[in-house]
Each structure stands twice: as structure tokens, then as C-alpha cells.
Design a protein around this nucleic acid. Structure first.
Length: 217
DNA sequence: AAACGCTCCAACCGCTTGTTT
DNA sequence: GAAACAAGCGGTTGGAGCGTT
């Protein structure tokens, strides 16, 4: 490993289109990682940290632009209730969104006392919806005993922990035990193709939004 | 028209954790 | 095992843009 380069005056502040182009071209050719060498090799007078941040938050392919949808907002609320300020963890469940984006959104919308009332209200809606869903699932379960294992191993433990914080490790462990393959993630229903349009869910009663996370794929 | 407040967002900072030598 | 470094994370800051007064 290369050692001790003298402190260098890195460029700071907003990125120029030229810098973006250099970084994008370099990363698409050589891949991510080794950010400090990326900075040098790409001819950028930027710190590795700055390069990584620019790539992750702005240049990386597949990033979504624009406002978060109500579904995404619901997921953020729910995951924040579970994990607190684990922004990068939360971001993993929102494809195309960055931790920075989520963090900014949270601070703007829910951090302030005034807004936290909105948060609490939505959280309560969410809980009610989930109770309702679980009730429905239990009834289905009576008719479909083969789903018993899933109910016992996944939904019940999650339900028990819904009012207290659980760790990501615990949640992942639950999922890993039941769904050992990589295809099965603890993923909000919004990413499933069930044919419902946005307008179907964003109605006068937006209950439909809040149960999404508890649907498993 | 100017001042002000608010939201959004890019970017930096400091710290922690993981990896390499 | 220790030290140095890289990468990642959460907190914070500052500026642009916009609406309101």
C-alpha cells in the first residue's frame, strides 16, 4: 500500500461538468473503488472522498431524480422507526435513492417539531394498516396452512418488534433464515409489479401506502 | 422591489470501521 | 499486533431558488 503522501491542496466546492465527465469516464472504464487513486488517475485535483461522494450521490447510473414518491416517504418513515438514522441502510431499500438524499429529506420534512406531528400521524396510520393486513393474512392462513412457516418465522417476529427498534442484523437474519437465496429481499411491495397504479394508492385514504413494507417478496 | 424565511440539495467534516503492509 | 491508509457513514453547513410579506 502506498504510504504517506504529503498533505495536498485538493480542490473543493461544486463540481464542474468537466470534472464530472472525467470521473464518469474513469469509473466506467475502471470501476469503483480505490478512490484516492481514481482522483489522481482521472486527472482530478479532488480528494478520493470527494470523488466517491460525487459518484455515489450524483453520477452513478440508475439514480432517480426528483421528489420522493409517497410510497418512498412511507418506507423511509417505517424504516426510520426500525433503524433510526441508519441512512445508508434505509437507502438500500430505495433503489435509485442515496443516503444523502434520504437524510436531507428527513431533516427537511420530519426533523422539526411541527413536522414530527405529521410523522407521528403517518406512523399511526401505518401501524393500523399493518394490524389490518396481519388480520387478513391470518385469515388467509387458516385456509392455506402451507403458509404457516412464513407467518411464524417472518411476520410474527416482525410484528412483535414493530413498536421497538430492532437491528438491521436481526431483520436480515430473519430473512436469511427463511429466504436463503439472494432473490428474496425484505422489499417493499411498491417494487412488486402488482398492477396497481399510483393513483390507486394515493387517494383520500392513503392507508394503502403504509402497509407496503410488510409485504414480502 | 426588497427583505425574509423556508426548502432543497450538494458538498464538506469528523469519526468509525475495515483492509493492507 | 501495530500503524497507516481507504472506505463508508452520519452530522452539518452553505448556497440557490422560490414564495410570502
Amino acid at each position: 500500500m502506498g504510504r504517506v503522501l504529503p498533505e495536498q491542496e485538493w480542490r473543493k466546492g461544486p463540481w464542474t461538468p468537466e470534472e464530472d465527465k472525467l470521473l464518469s469516464e474513469y469509473v466506467s472504464l475502471h470501476g469503483e473503488g480505490r478512490w484516492s487513486s481514481v482522483a489522481r488517475a482521472a486527472g482530478l485535483n479532488r480528494s478520493g472522498k470527494s470523488c466517491r461522494l460525487r459518484w455515489v450521490n450524483y453520477l452513478r447510473p440508475g439514480l432517480k431524480r426528483g421528489q420522493l414518491t409517497p410510497q418512498e416517504e412511507g418506507i423511509i418513515i417505517e424504516l426510520h422507526a426500525l433503524w433510526g438514522n441508519k441512512w445508508s441502510t434505509i437507502a438500500r431499500y430505495l433503489p435509485g435513492r442515496t443516503d444523502n438524499e434520504i437524510k436531507n429529506y428527513w431533516r427537511t420534512h420530519f426533523k422539526k417539531e411541527k413536522s414530527s406531528q405529521k410523522y407521528e400521524k403517518r406512523k399511526q396510520q401505518l401501524m393500523k394498516q399493518r394490524e389490518k393486513q396481519e388480520q387478513q393474512q391470518l385469515e388467509q392462513h387458516k385456509q392455506q396452512p402451507q403458509e404457516q412457516d412464513m407467518m411464524e418465522n417472518i411476520l410474527a417476529p416482525l410484528a412483535e418488534t414493530s413498536t421497538q427498534k430492532i437491528t438491521e442484523a436481526q431483520a436480515r437474519q430473519e430473512m436469511a433464515l427463511t429466504y436463503p437465496t439472494s432473490e428474496h429481499h425484505y422489499l417493499p411491495v411498491m417494487y412488486q409489479d402488482h398492477g396497481a397504479s399510483l393513483s390507486d394508492t394515493v387517494g383520500s385514504d392513503d392507508y394503502g401506502l403504509w402497509g407496503g413494507l410488510w409485504n414480502l417478496q
